[in-house]
């Protein structure tokens, strides 16, 4: 990108070019089935997940190897989260929540490799995740509790006059959940990557480049944290929404 910045003589920033979806082979249009850089980086994430959780645990050792202990650590971390938040009846949804967590954390971290592509920086991806969680949880709530699920919006311990007002607010906040859930993830990842690119553009000026490189390093360190925290936040919010569906009476 630094080379491109000088292409028109002055400083030109293309911080969003890293998010362009393009076909892996040829220059054809991007159809829904075309293997693109999205495919590549998701496939790499899948391969990493298989390497860690399938190949890494191949030994089934009681005294774990290093890779196996990392896999067990991740398992225990999410399992405990699901159990603590959703209770024992939430444990059967653990594989689905774990799938979300590992997908997000692996695409986030693979996206930190320079010149890579980050699927989780795209709202199309995170919206599918966010709305998927939203619809799944809502349907599960109605399936489990029928119309009692609507009790989630009716605060029976609030004063009677306030209850309709609270119910309206609760309904609005309930429908905002998937939006905030998905935009939070995509926004954080996209912003971090774009900021790094902007600093990289400044690196073309010799006088500023040391500052610019230092800033890139600092933001990169921040992004390492954000990548984990956003995966964690997405997962924990999924658990919280699931708990609402399983126990709407609080």
């Amino acid at each position: 990108m630094a080379g491109e910045a000088h292409s028109e003589g002055g400083l030109v920033f293309h911080p969003m070019d890293q998010f362009i979806v393009k076909p892996l082979f040829g220059q054809g249009p991007v159809e829904w089935y075309t293997p693109t850089n999205v495919t590549l980086w998701m496939a790499l994430a899948v391969l990493c997940i298989i390497a860690l959780f399938v190949l890494g645990t191949r030994g089934r050792a009681v005294i774990p190897s290093r890779v196996q202990s990392v896999a067990e650590l991740a398992y225990g971390f999410i399992y405990k989260m699901v159990e603590d938040i959703c209770g024992h009846d939430g444990v059967k949804y653990f594989p689905k929540i774990f799938t979300l967590f590992v997908f997000i954390i692996f695409t986030n971290y693979l996206g930190l490799i320079p010149m890579s592509f980050t699927p989780t920086s795209h709202i199309a991806v995170t919206a599918v995740l966010g709305f998927g969680v939203f619809f799944a949880v809502t349907l599960l709530g109605f399936y489990k509790h029928g119309t009692h699920f609507l009790g989630l919006f009716w605060m029976s311990d609030a004063p009677l006059i306030l209850r309709p007002i609270i119910a309206i607010i609760e309904v609005i906040s309930y429908f905002v959940r998937p939006v905030s859930h998905s935009i939070r993830l995509a926004g954080n990842i996209m912003a971090g990557h774009a900021v790094i690119k902007v600093f990289a553009g400044f690196a073309a000026i010799a006088a500023i480049s040391p500052v610019s490189i230092f800033a890139i390093v600092a933001i990169y360190g921040l992004e390492v944290l954000v990548s984990f925290i956003q995966a964690y936040v997405f997962t924990i919010l999924t658990c919280v929404y699931l708990r609402d569906a399983l126990h709407p009476g609080h």
């Binding site: 159809e31 829904w32 089935y33 998701m42 979300l100 590992v102």
Partner: peptide
Amino acid sequence: NQIFWLVVALAVIY
């Protein structure tokens, strides 16, 4: 395209 490959990836991971 993104949604299709996301669903594929999630299905494989799951």
